[in-house]
Design a protein around this nucleic acid. Structure first.
Length: 240
DNA sequence: GCGACAG
DNA sequence: ATCTTGTCGC
């Protein structure tokens, strides 16, 4: 059958309702070892200033080779505002729409934002993971929550991000002399495995390949260089 | 009350 | 996130 997913509408949720919803979703989180990872995806959103049109994209790469194999693009309308702690309400609906276009789902998805490294353990990666019933990892570019610790200035060095004595994620130095990224489990994966996987996705840039490529394609999509739909990448394209 | 605050 | 030129460092 086609989509069985009722189009979720968060636009009219108050932050109070959104908070209660996150707390409920968090009860469904599950952390387990993920086996046989052959494909990994990167998901991201782009939009024009003062516009409700979201440009969503998901790229699928081979793992751990990081070869782009396919990507899907779709737009989605939402008026939900950005507010720290509630990113999922703005981005997840759009991401679920592009997700449905993918024929062969990837083994794990890396999202641009946090997983359980969040005040209610419900960052955008965990939120998407629960609704899509998909293994996810959060990889944020700045810290939202937790005690920050700075890893030494060596590639792939890490520190734990702790909150009330509990390790919720890691700061990861993906590139020397560059700001760290923050990795945390989203859903259906463990914290340690999330870190290991993201480390394996680091190329010559600060942002790990999955989300870096996703960011590039959604921007090309927004600026009209790419069209909506599911795209297979035939030739070992080296673009991006 | 004050400061912090993913994208 | 987006808007933007030059500029400092490796």
């Amino acid at each position: 059958m086609a989509s069985t997913c009722t189009k979720i509408m968060y636009d009219h949720y108050s932050f109070e309702e959104a908070t209660a919803y996150q707390t409920e979703l968090a009860k469904q989180l599950k952390f387990q070892q993920l086996q046989n990872i052959d494909t990994i995806a990167g998901a991201d959103i782009s939009f024009n200033k003062n516009s409700d049109t979201m440009y969503a994209g998901i790229v699928i790469l081979t793992y751990p080779d990081m070869v782009l194999r396919s990507f899907s693009l779709a737009t989605y309308e939402t008026s939900f505002p950005y507010k720290p702690g509630f990113l999922g309400f703005k981005e997840v609906p759009a991401l679920l729409k592009v997700w449905e276009l993918i024929k062969n789902k990837p083994d794990v998805v890396v999202l641009d934002g946090n997983g359980i490294l969040h005040p209610r353990r419900m960052g955008v990666a965990s939120h998407f993971g629960i609704l899509a019933n998909q293994a996810t990892i959060g990889c944020a570019k700045s810290l939202l929550y937790g005690e920050n610790h700075v890893p030494e200035n060596k590639k792939l060095s890490t520190t734990e991000i702790i909150s009330h004595g509990e390790t919720l994620g890691f700061a990861l130095r993906t590139k020397i002399k560059c700001a760290t990224v923050y990795v945390s489990a989203g859903h259906l994966i463990t914290a340690d495995q999330s870190l290991e996987i993201v480390k394996n996705c680091v190329g010559n840039y600060r942002i790990p390949e999955p989300t870096r490529m996703a960011h590039n394609i959604v921007n090309d999509f927004r600026t009209g260089k790419l069209k909506a739909g599911f795209h297979e990448v035939s030739a070992p394209l080296t673009l991006f």
